[in-house]
């Protein structure tokens, strides 16, 4: 194998690792949209708060990493429920534009609140995870860890959705909202559970991202737009579509970044997104109907 091939392979592998995390990111947003029919514009800001939770618990209060992660996930899950109960639920009957504006307002509120509370300095866990060298390739341990944890998180969500009654109701409500009453399902309860799950997924994403990135009040801007685009590319509310789109995006970023530099990877990814919006506006796996 030539040097070129090794770089390409390394980029492909990194693309898969990035794809796992992006898939996790998009799953939370997709789940909430599919079930509640509302886009959490402030989704990435929940992740930002989760990253701060990790930072304070692990670096300031020296909690063991796993405990810090569990508490951060739970905290963001609670935030998801609060977001739903305080902002979304009262607006469920309102026009979609009002819902967007409201969650958009929460985005700026959370950014400003974080700036006041935590300052604008970049914070990190100060962990230096090793880099693995496999067959001449460099694979970052933190990316590997993030990928594995994202995968485990997604498998758990999958099992929950496919095995439990509540999970079945979550899938069903995304397909026919009105008749849930006939099934004996209290939709409001399902919404709260979904919000907790969406928040929990944002919390898990926060734990993984804080291993690789510094946290600051505006860090959400680095993941928010891309998460949203992945969901749209996969077809908003289509879980499988989001999963596939996350890997497609990640490979474009990773392999595109190999030939030029990382910024170009993003340029390609967004250009691909715009092109796809012309070709398949309903998303990659859109059903013809």
């Amino acid at each position: 194998m030539g040097v070129f091939d090794i770089y390409l392979l390394e980029a492909l592998i990194n693309g898969v690792l990035l794809g796992g995390v992006l898939a996790l990111l998009s799953l939370g947003l997709n789940l909430v949209f599919g079930v509640i029919d509302v886009v959490w514009i402030c989704y990435a800001e929940l992740i930002m708060l989760g990253m701060y939770a990790m930072y304070f618990l692990a670096s300031v209060y020296h909690a063991p990493l796993l405990l810090a992660a569990a508490l951060s996930i739970a905290a963001v899950g609670v935030l998801g429920v609060l977001l739903h109960v305080l902002v979304i639920a009262p607006l469920l009957g309102a026009a979609p534009i009002n819902q967007l504006l409201a969650t958009g307002g929460v985005l700026f509120f959370l950014q400003s609140a974080a700036t006041i509370l935590f300052g604008i300095e970049f914070k990190n866990l100060g962990l230096r995870l090793p880099v693995l060298k496999v067959a001449g390739m460099f694979i970052s341990y933190s990316r590997l860890l993030a990928f594995a944890a994202a995968l485990i998180g997604m498998v758990l969500v999958y099992l929950f959705l496919s095995r439990t009654y509540t999970g079945a109701a979550i899938r069903a409500i995304a397909q026919d909202r009105q008749i849930m009453t006939l099934m004996g399902v209290d939709s409001r309860r399902i919404y709260v559970i979904t919000s907790a799950l969406g928040g929990g997924l944002a919390g898990l994403a926060a734990c993984l991202l804080v291993l690789q990135y510094d946290v600051h009040p505006f860090v959400g801007l680095s993941f928010g737009p891309i998460t949203f685009l992945i969901c749209v590319l996969g077809g908003l509310g289509n879980f499988l579509g989001g999963f596939v789109a996350a890997f497609v995006f990640a490979e474009i970023i990773s392999v595109g970044g190999l030939y030029l530099d990382l910024e170009w990877g993003y340029v390609f990814a967004f250009a691909f997104f715009i092109a796809m919006m012309f070709v398949r506006p309903q998303g990659l796996l859109a059903r013809r109907s």
């Binding site: 009654y165 079945a168 069903a172 397909q175 026919d176």
Partner: peptide, 12 residues
């Protein structure tokens, strides 16, 4: 629920 299996529909 068109994108759920028959048995999942019955489960609902």
């Amino acid at each position: 629920f068109p994108r759920m299996t028959v048995e999942d529909n019955l489960k609902m």
